[in-house]
């Protein structure tokens, strides 16, 4: 039964592996767009990916400073000590991010078709998705 299990933090090693995977993914995106002769888009993807990882590192550092008993679902989730309500909130938030991604993808394609800059569009989509994730997480944390 999960509720009787002791809380276990997400280890630094696993967090570093996750960050490493993120950097590799951002690097692969950069490589793909560079090969496709889209240097602006490649730069946008790289900057966006690195920004997301940097944010994750910063928030984890902030959560760790507050300790494992951090009085917030976001901190517990980032420290890997989320309980079932936190996980419910995270799951619902990610579902909203999926919906937002679906909509943002369509809008981004339309913007590109109208001549918008690729790097700008990718950066905007990433910013919107991060904002949706944080906003919905905070909103659900207050209401649930």
């Amino acid at each position: 039964m999960t509720t009787s299990e002791p809380k276990r933090s997400l280890s630094d090693g696993r967090f570093l592996v996750a960050c490493g995977c993120g950097l590799v993914a951002a690097g692969l995106l950069w490589l793909v767009f560079t090969i496709a002769d889209q240097p602006d888009t490649a730069a946008g993807a790289l900057v966006g990916g690195v920004t997301v990882i940097a944010l994750a590192v910063a928030v984890r550092w902030w959560a760790r400073r507050r300790g494992p008993s951090a009085d917030g679902g976001l901190g517990r989730t980032l420290l890997g000590t989320a309980d079932e309500r936190d996980k419910t909130i995270l799951t619902a938030s990610l579902a909203w991010v999926g919906l937002a991604a679906f909509l943002a993808n369509g809008i981004a394609l339309a913007a590109l078709a109208l001549g918008a800059d690729g790097a700008t569009v990718i950066g905007a989509v990433q910013a919107v998705l991060i904002a949706v994730l944080v906003g919905v997480f905070v909103l659900l944390s207050r209401r649930l």
Binding site: T3, S4, D83, R85, D86
Partner: peptide, 14 residues
């Protein structure tokens, strides 16, 4: 082994 917020939410029926 849950958060205080979870207990609060449970008590308030949310």
């Amino acid at each position: 082994s849950v958060s205080r917020q979870t207990v609060n939410s449970l008590e308030n029926g949310r």
